[in-house]
Amino acid sequence: MTAVFEFWLVTYKRVWRGSALSTFVLPLLTVLGFGLGVGDYVDGGVGGVPYLDWIVPGLIASTVMQVAMFESTWPVLSNFNWVRTYEGQAATPVRLDDILGGNLAYVVFRALTGAVAFLLVALPFGALHSWWALTVLPVSLLLAFAFAAPVFAYSSSVTSDSYLALLFRFAVIPMSLFAGVFFPVESLPVGLRWLAYASPLWHGVDLSRAATLGAPPEWSIPGHLLYLALWAAGGYAIARVRFKKRLVI
């Protein structure tokens, strides 16, 4: 598995400059443009917390989701259909779990770099209230896994990249807009509120927010962790079946 992970790290080395721009500059722009800009107009913050500080953990979780989702959609489809990287790996002594696990580990790693970048950007703005903020990293790790694993299963099942665009349109964007990143889930109508609670992102947001603000989360911590772990494990199991079907003939 480490060999496969290393392979992906080597490919990352070739493109990191471009992605460094998006990993660091985009969070900074978001904090400036949205956190500070709109924050100015939010009187009294959210429950006494300044708006900027309130949305930073939400944006971190949202970034982790977007990186994890992006890295497990087009690249996976391309590794199967266009570049055929997996086929090449499957022809070596590498096992199925190594191919899948190694690539997942890389995706989680990419998502983590996004979380680290965001924490570093948020620090000078005083948005991190407690040393607990460091626990954002393990939370992001789990969150990235919870998104990447099921999406690996999805991407290895669809026939056209149009379906990937649909995933972004109907899952990623609605989640990033309504799962408690920009405004409290409580202000949603009841039906939608439950949809938001069901989304993995809300659990990541609530945990991250508790961490950076050093305040208790809205829901139980073990509950959050268990729910995310369920997505990760379930996703992995399905992805494994899909990978096996396509690689072991």
């Binding site: 709109v38 107009y41 939010v42 959210v46 609605p174 807009l177 309504f178 920009f182 405004f183 202000s187």
Partner: peptide, 17 residues
């Protein structure tokens, strides 16, 4: 969706402009 999230959701926090 953006309109509903930012305009209405965040709008609830911002109020009038």
């Amino acid at each position: 969706l953006y309109l509903l999230s930012i305009g209405v959701g965040v709008g609830g926090l911002v109020g009038d402009l």
